[in-house]
Design a protein around this nucleic acid. Structure first.
Lengths: 154, 154
DNA sequence: CGCACTTACTTTACATGTAAACCATTCGGA
DNA sequence: TCCGAATGGTTTACATGTAAAGTAAGTGCG
């Protein structure tokens, strides 16, 4: 369905650029909702999952802010997510000995199990979300979006 | 820059579908941030602006939930935004006489002035955000994203 | 007529994002 | 060596999104 109808918008868009912007944001929203719902079934929120995923990718303890940096998130947000994950016993936090300002976080075995349980369904979900779009369009989409982001960079 | 580098991701993506999903979400985020910043200069948040914009589009008083519906937002969120806009004297709220459950909201002259002041800069911003992308790609983007959304619909 | 059901909102509780101010620790340089 | 600046985090305050429960006011049907 055309975006204009989805949004029950009366008039036409003011410009094609505006329509593209809204289109990207709307599509993103739909995808996020679906992913969030899947993760919720496993007791995780998006940002909690992201922290765990980054820690797994790294494979060893990481400073909080470095995790935040990879999520392109601001510091206060990480502090809270880390607190939640600590409470859920999905990570452990230790003070670095070489620099006592630094706190390192690390996955617990329980977190690793949870991640493993999420892997398959999440991959399936991504595939399902894009099932309607031919591979060729997907490649094109990646290219155009990358080009778009390059033009936005602050 | 490739998404993988932007996210400082170590390994490759697990699938092209996943990469597209992340790419859409990341691009959306960048756009939203820029728009939010512009609106903030005019004392508005995204959702406040959206409410005002919808009211202007309608041109006459509207029930709260109908506004929420067009924003694809859930009821509680609207209640709060409406409260803020009331406090900022950008809308007025009256109880419908025909159905006393319904509360109608309407723009104040101040809101109309604010909207008018935002129109130009916002249109310029949308154009600037997409300046890097050829018109043809924009049209393609709209098509592919629409196709994507059609495949997601719940 | 009267009671169950729906509708239009509001309230509360929780997760998240942003900005600004605040600690503690470390670093760099006079 | 001592002090101010930079760094790693936390806290607070505010806007937003979601879910769930509650309230007030219509609607429908026996």
């Amino acid at each position: 369905m055309a975006l204009r109808d989805e949004l029950k918008k009366r008039g036409p868009f003011d410009s094609i650029e505006q329509e593209v912007g809204l289109s990207i944001m709307r599509t993103s929203d739909l995808i996020e909702n679906r992913i969030a719902r899947l993760l919720r079934e496993h007791g995780l929120t998006m940002s909690q999952y992201n922290v765990l995923r980054i820690l797994r990718g790294e494979g060893k303890p990481m400073p909080c802010l470095e995790v935040a940096d990879r999520m392109i998130q601001v510091a206060p947000a990480i502090t809270r997510v880390v607190d939640q994950l600590l409470k859920a016993k999905l990570i452990v936090k230790t003070q670095s000995e070489s620099d006592r300002r630094v706190f390192l976080i690390e996955l617990t075995p329980a977190a690793k199990r949870t991640l493993k349980a999420v892997d398959g369904p999440l991959l399936d979900l991504h595939a399902a979300l894009m099932a309607n779009v031919p591979k060729k369009s997907l490649k094109l989409l990646i290219e155009i979006l990358e080009q778009t982001r390059d033009g936005i960079g602050e």
